[in-house]
């Protein structure tokens, strides 16, 4: 029990004096996960709109597959990206294994299906409501998709944040393709795993507190924005 209390005390001390090492790890985590979310959003939202509004053969199967991909285990994604980027792999010549770029690629692969699948559901629900009206006004499917993306924007923000939460919290993919190299590819989750096994509980705990706080703060912010927007715009 005293160990736990001491660990917490030291963790808060590290946070309160903005320990340089701690800051470096948090900053890299944010940089990697935010970039991955940006890429996944750019790819995922149009895909979601396409599967929501598009009518093509095999659509139902694609949607089932997409929903299944939401549950991709991070370690499997890590392994696949590792095989692609390793020296003998097809993209080995790029030499980006064990760099933040590799971690961004792995996380983007992990969360693009999440953003695409969840936005597909949201946009399709809106399409059921809007379809006749938009067709009556002469909107083609492409125009309709853009309109729906804009009209569901507040729900989509929540989805994007869910993607960010997933990226920031996963450890399996980044540890495999990043390698957890001190000062280069060490992020919050990989550092927590390492420091815990080394017995440096205060640093691990401090990072854990920041990680949880960050995810809670982001989601609280998103829900406040969404509530306010829905009150304002209906």
């Amino acid at each position: 029990m005293t160990d736990l209390i001491r660990a917490f005390a030291e963790a808060f001390d590290l946070i309160s004096r903005l320990d340089a090492k701690l800051i470096e790890i948090v900053a890299l985590s944010l940089a990697v996960s935010l970039t991955a979310v940006a890429i996944a959003t750019i790819l995922g939202l149009p895909l979601g709109a396409l599967f929501a509004v598009g009518r093509f053969r095999g659509r139902q199967m694609v949607i089932v597959l997409l929903n299944a991909l939401m549950g991709l285990p991070p370690v499997v994604v890590g392994l696949l990206v590792y095989l692609l980027l390793s020296r003998a792999g097809p993209l080995g010549a790029l030499g980006i294994l064990f760099t933040p770029t590799a971690m961004i690629i792995a996380q983007a692969i992990l969360i693009t299906p999440i953003i695409a699948a969840l936005s597909r559901q949201t946009i399709e629900d809106a399409w059921h409501e809007y379809e006749e009206q938009l067709r009556s006004l002469g909107a083609q499917r492409l125009t309709a998709s853009v309109t729906l993306l804009w009209d569901t924007r507040f729900s989509l923000v929540t989805i994007i944040l869910a993607g960010f939460g997933r990226a920031a919290a996963e450890v399996g993919a980044v540890i495999i393709v990043g390698g957890n190299i001190d000062g280069v590819t060490r992020v919050m989750t990989t550092a927590i795993a390492l420091e815990t096994s080394k017995g440096d509980l205060p640093l691990a705990l401090g990072l854990g507190i920041i990680l949880v706080g960050l995810v809670v703060a982001l989601n609280a912010g998103a829900s406040v924005i969404k509530e306010a927007a829905l009150r304002r715009y209906g």
Binding site: E129, Y130, E132, Q133, S136, L137, G138, A139, T143, T147, W150, D151, R153, Y233, G234
Partner: peptide
Amino acid sequence: AMVFQRPVMLRRSALANVVYGLKLA
């Protein structure tokens, strides 16, 4: 043009809803 039993309004201003239809036309 058609007006439905339950109006479907876009999440934008009243004016922008009318402008939306005009632009599409």
